[in-house]
Design a protein around this nucleic acid. Sequence first.
DNA 1: CATGAATGAGGATTCATTCAT
DNA 2: GATGAATGAATCCTCATTCAT
Lengths: 212, 212, 212, 212
Amino acid sequence: MSTVPAFKRLPRAVREQQMLDAAVKVFSRRGFHAASMDEIAEDAGISKPMVYAYLGTKEELFVACLHREGTRMMQAIAGAAAPDLPADERLWRGLKAFFGFVGAYRDGWAVLYRQARGEQPFAGELATMRARLVEVVAGMLDHALRAEGREIAALDLEVVAYALVGATESLADWLADHPDADPEKTATRMMNVAWLGAAQLLHGVTWHPPAD
Amino acid sequence: MSTVPAFKRLPRAVREQQMLDAAVKVFSRRGFHAASMDEIAEDAGISKPMVYAYLGTKEELFVACLHREGTRMMQAIAGAAAPDLPADERLWRGLKAFFGFVGAYRDGWAVLYRQARGEQPFAGELATMRARLVEVVAGMLDHALRAEGREIAALDLEVVAYALVGATESLADWLADHPDADPEKTATRMMNVAWLGAAQLLHGVTWHPPAD
Amino acid sequence: MSTVPAFKRLPRAVREQQMLDAAVKVFSRRGFHAASMDEIAEDAGISKPMVYAYLGTKEELFVACLHREGTRMMQAIAGAAAPDLPADERLWRGLKAFFGFVGAYRDGWAVLYRQARGEQPFAGELATMRARLVEVVAGMLDHALRAEGREIAALDLEVVAYALVGATESLADWLADHPDADPEKTATRMMNVAWLGAAQLLHGVTWHPPAD
Amino acid sequence: MSTVPAFKRLPRAVREQQMLDAAVKVFSRRGFHAASMDEIAEDAGISKPMVYAYLGTKEELFVACLHREGTRMMQAIAGAAAPDLPADERLWRGLKAFFGFVGAYRDGWAVLYRQARGEQPFAGELATMRARLVEVVAGMLDHALRAEGREIAALDLEVVAYALVGATESLADWLADHPDADPEKTATRMMNVAWLGAAQLLHGVTWHPPAD
DNA sequence: CATGAATGAGGATTCATTCAT
DNA sequence: GATGAATGAATCCTCATTCAT
């Protein structure tokens, strides 16, 4: 019955999303350190003490951003790359979803990687997220290898997967810096880098250092 | 037994190197923002005003670090990967030199990439350095392709090179985080990722998205 | 007996005045450069960040002082020297009000002139304020001259007015340095310097350099 | 017999003058606080320790500037206004010499007054110099009054002289700010302000406050 | 005589964070 | 629940001043 003005006394969940939106925006524009809680609060249209009450300290707030954006990204990928598809199909769909996400949420991507990578407090968080990706990729490769009757040392597998993830992140950076670039085209290029080599590996072709 | 009282009234060139050493160390441990000029000065065994007198502001100091470490790295690579070698040989030697450098100067690598990537003021500096690498790699691929009588769009070439550089940087990160890992082994793994795929490309094999 | 804990959580307007009071006091005692924001904040009974939050940087704070004191002074003069009075009466009342102000707010005067004059960043501010005074005085002279059927070159008028203002400022300095001196007596003396000469000018008497 | 390069190993007196030249220039451009000993030394073409060795601390250096410029000015005036001339002639010549000096050595004037006025450490020095001027002017007035068979209270005399000196300084400021203005014209204007009033005083005309 | 090297000390400014209303 | 008011604690940077060569 009360006629409270819109945008006031919103339920907590809504407020929190507003704050996270503002935080992601400001963190991605300014970077973690240069971002000020003042600016975030102002951008969220809320007073600073509210931000602290709802989402805690600056670090906690950043971690919350990381979580939200990371979860969104993983969901986008997981939803596209069903585990029962063949390896190349899975990889292709996953990459398409990934680059699509990056293209659509450049701010989120900037928060996730560009900022988090440099700041030690979040290295752990980031490592966890990346580890999940690496694990997925490594699992795909391993699965495909076993289907071919082959095997590869776990460490080698991990490192190769790590490299592929790194290449992908790098192209994501490139995409974030080229607003006009086409995400799907970028995914295709990544496939050409990743799959051609991986397919060789699957067929048992490997490279060895020369005698030197 | 030396007749010079160590650490006192050293000539400028020496002090500057000491300062850069300290700065690289502190920046790599703490990150650009969290690093304090006080700590850098103390670590260099000198007072703050000297740091300002010789190397300028904090940003200028960081750029100086970037330059020194970047130059060292490029020299290490250039010295190893002579341009007259065949492509795979050049790639292999370049990677070996690169991972060797990263393994030997983990602090320098951290300053170069992990820190610089996140901080906007240095994005430009870093982009320039990475662009040089990408250009070299792209040049190698292009050279090899032409030798095979093939060609590829410049943009595609750049993006593929970008991905390879990204994968390499990612493995370098991994190496920096695993002090016991063997640089040469890591280089071998990178070759397996990069060269197997690149060789396919060289032979005209490409991947195309399914009809969907 | 008051129910409000004095000096705590005061509204912004009140705190700003306290800060300005403190700033005027400290600036006038120490001079702009030698004054420290620490001392001003402490004198205002508040922490430094509040000063920055409300009044901005040291320069902006000084300008705020200049504005407040200058406005007060101009109001005191304007309130006393009604424009419809005869010239000598206006001049007398204006001078009385002016020296009364200086006698009552010696700190304010010191900030206004002694400090501002020396520091380049405020030369403009001060020049504007002095220009207003000069204009008023010149206007008075011009008005009186025209009433006598005479005229004088605008530049001459300005310079003469400038000299009168300078003489007045100088006596104000003298007054500020002699706490026991009587402001009204000082005003009378200034009239004897200013009016006797001005009256001659009004009657067409002028001095010309000898043939030499 | 030695062929030392010119401008090196100069006799002390010469070096000191070079330093003072540089100091006057820098102080007048930047103001006392903003001026740095580095800049002064560099401008003098000499190393900082030399400045300290010859002229002492920054304050002492400033005082030395004050002395040199003040002495030059007093000499210029004293040389022109011979004590045996009639009062108006003396005043006219003195003013001409004064404004001529200011016009010729704007830097010196800026150091003398604009800078020194604001900085407490030099208030005393300045007051002494101004007192000498005031004394001279007051002496002139007194001498002329007695010649007319009149007398005036010492304090009144001092204050009036103070006002005249103030007006003169003020016009000197104006002159320093208007590089194209003619010093002699300015002196004439000052005579019109000063002498017309003073002459009235000499003839026994005085102004008294209205009954109120 | 002359200077490059070196520093102690201090000041402006900013920010994350928390009360008291 | 919500906020204006308030601050402790750092951090960058500069400068007058002095050794040691």
